[in-house]
Nucleic acid binder design. Sequence first.
DNA 1: AAGTATCT
DNA 2: TACC
Length: 215
Amino acid sequence: MDLFSTDGTESWWQEPICPGAVVLRQFATAATTDILTTLDGLIADAPLRQMQTPGGGKMSAALSACGDYGWVSDRRGYRYAAIDPLTQQAWPEMPDLLSTLAARAAAAAGYPHYSPDVCLINCYETGAKMGLHQDKDELDFSAPIVSVSLGVPANFQFGGAKRTDKPVKIPLQHGDVVVWGGPARLNFHGVLTVRKALHPLTGSRRFNLTFRKTH
DNA sequence: AAGTATCT
DNA sequence: TACC
């Protein structure tokens, strides 16, 4: 296990998943109180909402976003939109605290010069899940995905380039960051049903921040 | 479709 | 696998 400590205030380590993908364990732990305060402000301006899917279903995780665009799903399909359909306003600007964290994580995983234009905010209550899918609505697949876990734990599933590839199950805790790009950029991934639990900073909720370069 | 129903 |  490779252990990193730059100034004595952070201590994290990395666990490879497959070529192009890695877990940065406890990478964000030191900053999570400030991140969650920042999140409160963001979702006050762009409320979390459960989006409709094209088939007529509803996603169990509630979503919001900040940055230049947000990911939107409705009966017509999936897309990135510059205007939040709920508020009819632009999405909140991405705070420096978040873009800096994402860039630091990407660099640590071997992807320097990362400048995401979107941060999706996913909120999982007990029982919520996310089916296996690919992040393929972006226009730039050369940039990685950076995924920050906060609050109650969850089991992440990370598969291959084909839906039928058997995923590996990765338990994620508060402060863990997953980065995937390069040969793993389009790999299928998802979140198993979140189990009832309590976290001192988020109660029963799990938040997931996913950063992307969409344009 | 990031979900769900329906099939083999 | 199909869904428009």
